[in-house]
Write a protein that binds this DNA or RNA. Structure first.
Length: 592
RNA sequence: GGAGCUGUCGUCUAGCGGUUUAGGACACGUGCCUGUCACGCACGAGGUCGCGGGUUCGAAUCCCGUCAGCUCCGCCA
């Protein structure tokens, strides 16, 4: 249909007769002369309709409106010097139009494409086809394509093959809530959409495919966040005969390549690496934002002799006391401090203590009267306190103290503008505990997943003290975001059974849920490991965007609704019958 | 399951108990305009202030409920 695309035309096309197709970005009517900015995926070019040149096309141009789709035939002309538009890549030329055809009319769009940033999220999602025309979304989608392209190129070059695995998969316990799909041919039975292709990847390793990857769509029926959608995409890969080091190196190579090719930036590799324990101790998080410092300082030891009840209780329970120091307490009103205390409670800690360092090293705090002179001196010396400093202290059990202060640290990071927005700070977190204690369910739960191999050094605690087991798992963290995680997997049936047992599976349930895996492990399973990277998050971070909705063509709202298609939606009685489902009366209906 | 923020012409917003007949900007419609590119000028149309209830002489404005969007906690092997 067309001979050129809008964005490509330059001075050297002068005199060419071209046919262009695109959207009317803007029409400027000057009476006998009409300018139209014609837009396609490649850019914008000015098209001129001159009544003296072609009365017919000029007349048609009168009817043009924003977002009409047209085809024009005309000649590329170099613009007179004084009318060159330097804001436009095609600004040195314009098309003198001889013929025009309206290919598709358009209603007035629900919002103007050039002020997308201000438009309400709901409006944009309802008219996503309009939103996707904006420069921002066009560029986000292109960015996404570039990242996946480089990923494929890189992994292909490293001996990987791309393999697909079922979307209609088996529901497995553990982990996120499954999306279920009823089976018509097997009444009463359900498939589950995969939370990740994890077990299929592993079994492909058992099958002798040395390295496989997949740009994998994953489904988890959990609540949404700015960086969490019910369906999302992972760069999911698995390799045989590897150690942690091998996977880490490979991923560093991949990330390096992606940044180099996509943004031109040379990311520093290898990435910083720290253990899970270290990360909790110093940043109060398993996904620390290393773009700013503000480390957590442990004051448990110097508080040993404290007379302060809360401290005494925590110390008796083998908890810990940690602090962060802020330069200037004048940044915080009394209300701000109260809010910080509330925040600490929200994150599960008993509370938060603040101490202001006033003139002559006088410590002003709600707990001043409980602090002995010795304690004060210790704090000042140990935390190297200076006048105007503000100390925040949390005392509770280890993990609560860490995560609470960690959350406050990351809040302060943005609140006090400590974050260098331009930076990309990667880190690996390693040596995760294999299990966590689930207080609600009163049982062990896997920190990573139940197929993760315990480290050789801690394997001896398997029977005696499973909470002491460390895993061969690793997370990759970028600017405080969990970008991905992986592990070396168990390749031994007995060990796998042992882990399931610790997780509370009896033989029967083990067989029902994971029989296929245990059997597969008995027919020769090589050592293997892999990782999954959150593709949407990676692209969001590269694009410096606030939400993964910005890098997904058709995302869902926080209540998991696609506003454009109005999905999910009810289905007919017949459809339900065919899959042997009868709806229970749900709350909303019964209340009416 | 919970907390917070938001909801006013198509869009972005002003108004936060009484000269409000709800104002503006952009968009939109009509007309004029031969060098604009955030075109300009003139005129015009467009809103049951998310929805329901209450308080009040009087509610966009205050209160309660509800719905929706967003952010967060829980949840996310």
């Amino acid at each position: 249909m067309r001979t050129h695309i809008c964005g490509e035309l330059r001075k050297n096309h002068e005199g060419s007769n071209v046919v262009l197709c695109g959207w009317v970005n803007k029409r400027r009517d000057h009476g006998k002369l009409i300018f139209v900015d014609l837009r396609d995926f490649s850019g914008v070019i000015q098209v001129v309709f001159d009544a003296n040149l072609s009365q017919a096309s000029y007349n048609s141009a009168k009817d043009l409106r924003t977002e009409y789709i047209i085809e024009i035939r005309g000649e590329v002309k170099v613009r007179p010097d004084e009318t060159i538009n330097n804001d436009l890549l095609t600004g040195e030329v314009e098309i003198s139009t001889q013929e025009i055809r309206i290919l598709s009319a358009s209603k007035t769009p629900p919002f103007m494409l050039d002020d997308r940033a201000k438009v309400d999220e709901m409006t944009k999602l309802k008219y996503r086809y309009v939103d996707l025309r904006t420069e921002e979304m066009q560029s986000n989608m292109r960015l996404r394509h570039e990242v996946t392209t480089v990923t494929r190129q890189y992994l292909n070059s490293q001996g990987f093959i791309e393999a697909e695995t079922p979307i209609l998969a088996k529901s497995t316990p553990e982990g996120a809530r499954d999306f279920l799909v009823p089976s018509r041919l097997n009444p009463g039975a359900f498939y589950a959409l995969p939370q990740s292709p994890q077990l299929f990847k592993q079994i492909l390793m058992f099958s002798g495919f040395d390295r496989i990857y997949q740009i994998a769509r994953c489904f988890r029926d959990e609540d949404l966040r700015a960086d969490r959608q019910p369906e999302f995409t992972q760069i999911d890969l698995e390799m045989t005969f590897v150690k942690v080091e091998d996977v880490v190196n490979l991923v560093e190579g991949l990330i390096y390549k992606v940044f180099k090719e996509v943004t031109g930036e040379e990311i520093k590799i290898p990435f910083v690496r720290m253990t899970w324990k270290e990360s909790q101790e110093t940043y109060g998080s398993d996904k620390p934002d290393l773009r700013f410092d503000m480390k957590l300082k442990d004051v448990t030891e110097i508080s040993r002799d404290s007379k302060f009840n809360i401290f005494i209780n925590v110390l008796n329970k083998k908890g810990c006391i940690k602090s962060i120091v802020i330069d200037d307490y004048n940044e915080f009103t009394r209300k701000d401090l109260d809010d910080l205390v509330d925040m600490a409670k929200k994150y599960g800690a008993g509370g938060l203590i603040w101490i202001k360092v006033e003139e002559n090293q006088v410590l002003n705090s709600p707990i001043s009267k409980f602090l002995s002179p010795g304690e004060r001196e210790n704090l000042i010396k140990f935390l190297k306190l200076k006048e105007k400093n503000l100390v925040l202290i949390v005392a509770d059990e280890f993990i609560k103290t860490c995560t609470t202060l960690g959350a406050i640290r990351s809040y302060l990071g943005s609140r006090l503008n400590l974050i260098g927005e331009e930076e990309f700070k990667f880190t690996w977190i390693v040596d995760f505990p294999l299990f966590e204690w689930d207080e609600k369910e009163k049982r062990l739960s896997p920190t990573h997943h139940p197929f993760t191999r315990p480290s050789d050094e801690t394997l001896k605690y398997l029977k005696s003290d499973p909470l002491k087991l460390n895993s061969l798992a690793y997370d990759i963290v970028l600017n405080g975001n969990e970008l991905g995680g992986g592990s070396i997997r168990i390749n031994n049936s007995e060990l796998q059974k042992g882990i399931f047992k610790l997780l509370g599976f009896d033989t029967k349930r083990m067989e029902e849920n994971f029989g296929f895996l245990l059997r597969a492990l008995e027919y020769g399973a090589p050592p293997h490991g892999g990782i999954a990277l959150g593709l949407d998050r990676l692209i969001m971070l590269i694009g410096r965007l606030e939400s993964i909705r910005e890098v997904i063509a058709f995302p869902k709202t926080q209540s998991a609704v696609d506003i454009m298609t109005e999905s999910p939606s009810p289905v007919t009685e017949q459809q339900l019958n065919e899959v042997n489902i009868r709806l229970a009366k749900f709350k909303k209906e019964t209340e009416e």
